[in-house]
Design a protein around this nucleic acid. Structure first.
Lengths: 133, 133
DNA sequence: AAACCATGTTAGATTATATAACATACCGTT
DNA sequence: AACGGTATGTTATATAATCTAACATGGTTT
């Protein structure tokens, strides 16, 4: 099990697609960004580009809002999770860490392709939240 | 659960992203479409939207072109593969095959339930082309 | 009531993409 | 050598998608 994080963090989706995938309005998505719940990448021309992780988070935001949590609360929840995720579980990081550092765009793309090629039809392990894949 | 599974033929990616992912120019991608090698979906406003399958195919096109095959040849190759995929490989019951090729959500769920009832595991034979997912 | 929160709506600007036409380098034939 | 086809580059023009910013609004809190 390798760097699925490359895949999940790669900025791929326009806001239009994310709207469809999440059933959120553009206004909502931008508002959530404005309040630090997500930080989508940008194109050179300043268009937002969302990753799978961004979409996951948006779905989580939506869930929590449906359950009556306000944005401040959601922000806290995300912070907690963030801390938990930062605890490195034994050695699962070494390539992942390396990857995160110094890689040209071209290299990254190549890696992504490799990942995608073998990612096949395996569904994600049991993660925390329900996840896109 | 919550909802979105990303299907291989779900239209998700703008041409800009596909350019990055494949290292093809917009001109090339449109030209390949013009010649029937791919058929990306369109938005209401006529913008192309590519699926993972489309990207697969484009990468394959690129590979074959690098190997000196011309578009006519690639088209033939795709036709052959298409036919092969349509042949149920004996053990592979056509329902699993259908799942792999993907259709509506409702249909998929129905098939999965049936599968589970039969305690059948799916393993599609290790097959033809490496696939993105 | 006043203030705040989350979202809707509108206006105006800019980017990304579309089609279409013409240009060109590289082939293989005649 | 001239010719025609193939695959791609380039340019022009149009429009769709997205951006920011501002104002509007229905609920909640205070």
């Amino acid at each position: 099990m390798g760097g699925s994080q490359i895949r999940r963090n790669m900025p791929l989706f326009s806001i239009g697609i994310v709207m469809q995938l999440t059933d959120l309005t553009a206004r909502q998505i931008r508002y959530y960004e404005e309040h630090g719940l997500i930080s989508p990448a940008r194109t050179e021309g300043n268009k937002r580009l969302f990753s799978l992780n961004d979409i996951d988070k948006l779905l989580e935001v939506k869930d929590l809002i449906d359950q009556g949590v306000n944005l401040a609360g959601i922000k806290q929840i995300f912070n907690v999770k963030q801390q938990q995720d930062d605890v490195p579980t034994d050695e699962e990081n070494k390539e992942a860490e390396k990857v995160r550092k110094d890689l040209s765009d071209a290299e990254l793309r190549k890696l992504l392709r490799k990942e995608l090629l073998r990612a096949g039809r395996f569904n994600r392990g049991q993660g925390h939240p329900p996840r896109l894949q």
